[in-house]
Design a protein around this nucleic acid. Structure first.
Length: 324
DNA sequence: AAAATATACAACCGCGAGGTT
DNA sequence: TAACCTCGCGGTTGTATATTT
């Protein structure tokens, strides 16, 4: 395919920052045409601008368009960007379609200047969204604070006050959760382990920050085989849903009553809950309706999301470990 | 206060996709 | 079917501003 010479290479075509006059000329020209640009290539001549059409298009789409939202990104927007990036990578234009008023360029810049650094500081690879190895070195105090080490540090601190059965059970529970998270991508085993963990929770009447469970939810959504930060919990787009759907299709025996593992047996008491999860894959490859909704029943399991004041130690530790 | 460095973001560039001739 | 043309994407650069030394 031949490639046409870009008008940007023409001698005398202005480059660099746009002036207010140029902005006004471009906006007025497009408004005169009822918001329809027509040919970008022909726009400079028609509008009297000494710019190449490409530059005009960029200026309009990234800055002058009336529906562009200016200002800082909200936490929700940031979480959504990260979630989408985890699912589809550097597809900035696709990501932008999920954020009203944000441009692909703006999102890309925000990613490169803010989010990427935050993830690195948190020990998360901004490309793969997976935990960086323990010997990963970045500036800042949180670099080496991987979730597992934090959890065990927390357990050790709890145990430090005396050999308490409840604390020991918590430590074992954490170990089980971490093992489930780190061992494989098998959704059936994962859910079974989660149920077993929950059984332990209920038997000891202890509580655990739901951040841990969110980490497991993230596994369901991304297929990553280790703990992911809680930010990935906020997922609802088509891309993630497709990922989830693939998992569900390949794990049609996801409900614990169909699993033969011992962990699944422990999970029997929650069979009804899981059976009502409505996690069956949509028919004929149709996208799963709503991932967040899909996970809701699991998040509502008794005891999983409660957080008593006496557990603030755990809560603080775990939240620190994920704080971006 | 000035220079050096870091940060944020607007803008540029090259390329591929896809439509048209 | 090949050549041409335009658009849009994603990576990169340039520059203004903020912060640090």
């Amino acid at each position: 395919m031949g490639r046409s010479p870009c008008c940007c290479h023409d001698a005398g075509v202005k480059k660099g920052p746009w002036t207010e006059e140029e902005d006004r000329a471009l906006v007025e020209h497009i408004q005169r045409r009822g918001g329809h640009v027509g040919s970008w290539r022909g726009l400079p001549k028609a509008s009297g601008l000494n710019r190449c059409g490409k530059s005009c298009r960029l200026r309009w789409t990234n800055y002058l368009r009336p529906d562009i939202k200016r200002g800082n990104f909200t936490d929700d927007e940031e979480r959504l960007i990260i979630s989408l990036h985890a699912a589809i990578g550097n597809k900035w234009s696709t990501i932008a379609t999920h954020l009203d008023g944000r441009t692909d360029n703006e999102i890309k810049n925000y990613w490169n200047t803010h989010i990427r650094k935050k993830l690195l500081r948190a020990g998360v690879d901004p490309v793969t969204h997976q935990q960086l190895p323990p010997d990963h070195h970045v500036d800042g105090p949180s670099a080496a604070l991987l979730p597992e080490s934090l959890l065990w540090a927390a357990a050790a601190a709890t145990l430090g006050g005396g050999l308490d059965t409840g604390a020991l059970m918590q430590a074992q529970l954490l170990q089980q959760l971490l093992h489930a998270i780190g061992s494989n991508n098998d959704t059936a085993n994962l859910i079974a382990n989660l149920a077993a963990a929950n059984a332990m929770l209920n038997s000891t009447r202890s509580t655990l920050p739901n951040l841990l469970l969110q980490g497991q939810m993230n596994m369901l959504s991304t297929g990553a085989n280790y703990l992911q930060p809680s930010y990935l919990c906020n997922i609802s787009s088509f891309a993630e849903q497709n990922v989830v759907q693939q998992h569900l299709i390949s794990n049609t025996t996801a409900c614990p009553e169909t699993s033969s593992s011992s962990a699944a047996e422990q999970a029997d008491q929650f069979g009804d809950t899981f059976a009502s999860c409505d996690v069956a894959p949509a028919a004929d490859g149709a996208p799963v309706e709503e991932f967040a909704g899909l996970l809701e029943p699991m998040m509502d399991l008794p005891g999983l999301c409660s957080m008593e004041s006496s557990d603030s130690f755990w809560k603080d530790i775990l939240e620190d470990s994920y704080r971006l």
